[in-house]
């Protein structure tokens, strides 16, 4: 049976908490002993989590001040899973078109970054249990 350790962080849906979420992601990644290309992977994970939480804060809740975003980090042998929950309108980043790279625009890079840096990306809309963006990163050997 696989061992799994989880860390859950819940923050108000305000962008001032983004640095706290990134710091948590970075510290958690530092506990993964077998991480190869350690500094780059940690930076990538921070970036992806920041993108996902930003989407939830700005798009799922809009200007609502009472929203909350929950991030669940699950460490499994050889993989890090990150689930980002919101209880707002939901925002499915997997449905957003890729930006036109030949004509740089002012939006759409967040999803591209998430897709590029993670091994699996999925979305489930569920206003009761929370809309969930599911991200998986393979992290080499056992955790």
């Amino acid at each position: 049976m696989e061992t799994m350790e989880t860390v859950t962080l819940t923050v108000p849906a305000h962008t001032r908490y983004l640095s706290l979420v990134r710091a948590c992601a970075a510290e958690l990644c530092h506990t993964i002993e077998s991480l190869s290309h350690r500094e780059q992977v940690i930076y990538d994970i921070q970036l992806v989590v920041s993108e996902a939480v930003t989407n939830a804060m700005l798009h799922a809740y809009g200007s609502r001040p009472d929203g909350r975003v929950q991030v669940v980090f699950s460490l499994l042998p050889g993989r890090l899973e990150i689930d980002v929950y919101d209880w707002g309108e939901g925002f499915d980043p997997t449905a957003v078109p890729e930006p036109d790279l030949e004509e740089p625009g002012e939006s759409g890079y967040g999803l591209m970054i998430i897709r590029s840096l993670m091994d699996e990306v999925g979305y489930r809309r569920d206003p009761v249990q929370g809309n969930r963006l599911h991200l998986v990163k393979r992290v080499g050997g056992a955790t």
């Binding site: 921070q46 920041s50 625009g105 890079y109 970054i113």
Partner: peptide
């Protein structure tokens, strides 16, 4: 030391 998609945009 950190730029996300909002910074890029």
């Amino acid at each position: 030391n950190f730029v996300d998609s909002t910074g890029l945009s």
